[in-house]
Amino acid sequence: MPTIEGKRVAFLATDGVEQVELDQPWQAVSEAGGRPELVSLEAGEIQAFNHLDKGDRKQVDTTVDQANPEAYDALVLPGGVANGDFVRADERAVKFVKDFVLSGKPVAVICHGGWVLAEADVVRGRTMTSWPSLKTDLRNAGATWVDKEVVTDQGLVSSRNPGDLDAFCAKAVEEIAEGVHA
């Protein structure tokens, strides 16, 4: 596994985040030497879920108002239906994501996290995957949607669901190690 020693990785999530889609990439980033930080819409804690059941509460490191995309080396957008919908409805979060994508830094997104990229209008001309119900939303936003475990397009790593997490995490760490894409 490549090393990402000292790289700061923003994980943008809020209440309703799918816990395994936050925890497993977080662990992969940590084990590769990266510094994951939970960025959210509000300070305090967020409520993670295991599908429809409440999971753990997670401590927020900083709010999206305080977070500067320039301070991070990569961005991870975990899924969860409520999480994806809440984040895409927040103008501050959408701006943060758009600025991040436009910087060319690696972005890793899984499941319903793709909604945020569609809302930020940054998927036009990109190939990606997601939870199948986002297929039309992503196509309408200009993406080419494919049903694959993991898709990488110029530093954008996308994946479908928790069953794809091993491949998703490995590819995300690899892209973070590579750094900025043109």
Rank of each mutant, 00 (worst) to 15 (best):
R160G: 14
A182C: 04
A43H: 01
P25C: 09
L117K: 08
V94C: 01
D56V: 00
A32D: 03
Q154K: 15
S40W: 07
P106S: 03
W145F: 12
V64H: 02
D137M: 14
Q19R: 03
M128T: 06
D137E: 12
E91D: 15
T3V: 03
L102A: 15
R126V: 09
D61M: 03
L156C: 13
R88F: 04
A71F: 05
A182E: 15
R8H: 14
S159T: 06
M1G: 02
E37K: 15
A32G: 10
G113W: 13
K171S: 13
G125A: 06
K98E: 14
R8M: 02
L12E: 07
K105R: 11
R35A: 13
F49S: 04
N140R: 14
A120H: 00
G179R: 08
G155D: 05
R92N: 07
E42A: 10
V9R: 01
G6C: 02
M128L: 15
P162N: 11
T63V: 05
P36Q: 02
E5P: 07
L156T: 02
A48W: 00
T63H: 06
N68Q: 11
V39K: 02
T14L: 08
F49V: 00
S40I: 11
P162V: 14
P36N: 00
A167K: 04
L52N: 11
T127Y: 02
H51W: 10
